[in-house]
C-alpha cells in the first residue's frame, strides 16, 4: 500500500491531564485511565500489521505518559519510518530549556501540536507557546497550534500572539465530556446543507482509545456507554464493521435517506458532522439488528 493510502492512527495513551479545561471532550468520569501493558502489546501488533503512516499521541496530556509512548515506539518495527506527533497542552514549556528536555525524552518525534485557545489560556501562560515553538525550532520539529472555538471571534487572541508562519488548526467545540457539562458548543446560525454532501471527515483516520478500542469515531458515538457497534478490539474488526461500512459508503445525505429521515428534523447543530452522525446512524444500526 502506498504511503499516502496508509491510515493515520491516533492513540489516546491516557485520560489524565494536569489541567481541567472547561471545554475538554474527555469525560470527567473517565478519571485517570492509562493504557495497560496488554493494550500496548495489542497496539504494537496492530501497528506492525497495518503500518500506519502517522501516529498521533494524545490524551489527556501525552507528556504525562512518555513511558507508555516510548514503550510503543520501541516495540514497533520501524519507529523512525512513521511520522510521529503529539498533541499537548504545552504547560511543561515554562522555559525553552524545559521544553527541549521534555521533547527529547520521546524516542521519536516529528511534530508537536499545542492546544492553545481561550480555555487553555486560563491555565497556561502565553510564554509557554513561544518557549515550545522555540524548542521545536531548535530540535527541527514541526510546530502548530490547535485552537478550540465556540465562535470565530475566539480566534482573535491570535492577533496578540505574534505567531507569523505558525499553522493553526481550528476545532469547533462539540458538546462532549466537560464541554457538555459546561454547555459549550460551536454554534451555527442556521443548518448548513453542505454537510449532507459530505462523508465522515475522519475516514482514513482511526483512534485507539485506551481501555476501549479502535474506532473511526472520536466523537459522540465512541464515547457512549455500550459502544460495541462503534469501537472494536482490532483495526480489521473495525474496518469490517457495519458502522464503518455505513460511514465509508454513504454521504450524510445518503445516510439520512437510508434511515428514512427527512431534512425537516435538522437543526443548526446538525451542521456538525458528528452531531448529524449521532442523529442518524444509531437508528440505522438498531433497525438492522
Amino acid at each position: 500500500m502506498s504511503r499516502k493510502h496508509r491510515l493515520v492512527l491516533g492513540i489516546t495513551v491516557g485520560t489524565g491531564c494536569n489541567l481541567r479545561c472547561r471545554h475538554c471532550l474527555v469525560d470527567k468520569n473517565l478519571g485517570s485511565r492509562r493504557i495497560t501493558k496488554s493494550e500496548i502489546e495489542l497496539l504494537v501488533s496492530e501497528i506492525n500489521r497495518c503500518k500506519p503512516r502517522e501516529l498521533i499521541f494524545t490524551g489527556g496530556e501525552p507528556v504525562l505518559f512518555t513511558g507508555e509512548i516510548n514503550s510503543i515506539l520501541s516495540a514497533i518495527h520501524e519507529p523512525y519510518g512513521i511520522y510521529t506527533s503529539i498533541v499537548t497542552n504545552g504547560s511543561f514549556a515554562s522555559t525553552t530549556a524545559a521544553a527541549v528536555k521534555t521533547l527529547k525524552s520521546f524516542k521519536a518525534l516529528h511534530s508537536v501540536q499545542m492546544s492553545y485557545d481561550k480555555f487553555h489560556a486560563e491555565f497556561v501562560p502565553e510564554a509557554c507557546v513561544h518557549n515550545l515553538r522555540e524548542a521545536c525550532r531548535r530540535l527541527d520539529l514541526s510546530f502548530g497550534l490547535v485552537c478550540a472555538i465556540q465562535a470565530p471571534l475566539d480566534l482573535i487572541f491570535l492577533n496578540k500572539l505574534n505567531l507569523a508562519g505558525v499553522s493553526v488548526t481550528t476545532q469547533k467545540i462539540l458538546p462532549i465530556g466537560r464541554a457538555k457539562d459546561n454547555a459549550l458548543n460551536y454554534s451555527y446560525p442556521a443548518f448548513e446543507a453542505k454537510v449532507l454532501r459530505k462523508k465522515c471527515p475522519n475516514l482514513g483516520r482511526l483512534v485507539y482509545n485506551c481501555g476501549n478500542g479502535f474506532t473511526t469515531c472520536c466523537g459522540f458515538l465512541a464515547s457512549k456507554p455500550g459502544n460495541s457497534r462503534y469501537v472494536h478490539r482490532t483495526i480489521a474488526a473495525h474496518l469490517k464493521s457495519r458502522f464503518y461500512e455505513l460511514i465509508s459508503s454513504y454521504t450524510f445525505g445518503g445516510l439520512l435517506r437510508l434511515a428514512g429521515l427527512s431534512n425537516d428534523g435538522l437543526s443548526p447543530a446538525h451542521s456538525a458532522p458528528c452531531a448529524l452522525c449521532e442523529y442518524i446512524v444509531p437508528g440505522i444500526l438498531s433497525s438492522q439488528k
Binding site: 491516533g10 489541567l19 474527555v26 498533541v87
Partner: peptide, 9 residues
C-alpha cells in the same frame, strides 16, 4: 472537522 485526533484539556 469534526475532531482531529486532538485533546482538549
Amino acid at each position: 472537522e469534526p475532531l482531529r485526533v486532538v485533546k482538549h484539556g
